[in-house]
Amino acid sequence: MVTFIEGIGTRTLKLCRSAFETLFFTWQVILHLLDLKTYNKATQLVIITQLYFTAVQILPLFIYISALMGLFLMGIVLDSIKQMGMAGNLGNILMGFIFTEVCPFMTVLLLALRSGAALNTEVAVMKVSKELDALNVFRIDAFDYIVVPRILSGIISVVLLNGIFTLVLLASGALFSRMIFGLAFDAYIRILVVSADFSDLVILILKCATFGFFITLLPIRYGLTASNELSSIPIAVLTGMNNVFIAIVVIEVLSLILSSI
């Protein structure tokens, strides 16, 4: 019984320590993000490279998946709206559910699976192979050179890719609303514009930026927990990716609460 209680205590302490360390790491990242001295030529070069890896290289696959998802999702949603006789709420359902909830969620899921895992492994490998020590010897701040560019490109990538995902779904929506409701394209756009709320747009962009921030911050943070042994890499990646998915759910729930206020 005592061992069981001790076990709970140990786990709680471990969890609290990990949460505190993550918060402290987040604070350090924010300070470096806001510091203009961070953005030297080396950092700028990494930002461009990371944007290419995170937002450009994924584009063909991303557009293919979003088109496929768009066709299925919009077909099912619009057909259900018609069957339930909710055609009057078409704009609200599309804007309030599909474009502000489903699109960012799918975007962040795809990016977390691809770039989050890659970042986590990259940083863990750099730690194990002592490349971070090499940076330190030459007085290159790992926060400036490794962490900040990756997080910044993560934020920009999620916001931009969410825009592309939304555009593809909008196009699918236009196609299906014509097939199911016989709506002309201009009428479809008018319905969406009327249903769009400026505050929803702000929350959407903030949510995408927060998603981008955390799906890059957490893999880096847990990548840095790798020890000097190769066997610590899979553990660091596993822990990092677990925390990324927890963060995605937490941000999604918080944004739902925020938008319902």
């Binding site: 030297n40 030529k41 080396a42 950092t43 070069l45 990259e122 490998v125 750099m126 192979s129 002592k130 490349e131 020590d133 090499a134 940076l135 010897v137 030459f138 007085r139 290159i140 400036d144 050179y145």
Partner: peptide
């Protein structure tokens, strides 16, 4: 014990210090 950075090519490994410290 001080390795080269594996995800950079040769010239970037050498130039990194100039890019970072001199913002060349």
């Amino acid at each position: 014990d001080i390795p080269l950075i594996s995800n950079l090519n040769v010239w970037l490994n050498i130039a990194l210090i100039r890019l970072y410290h001199l913002s060349e």
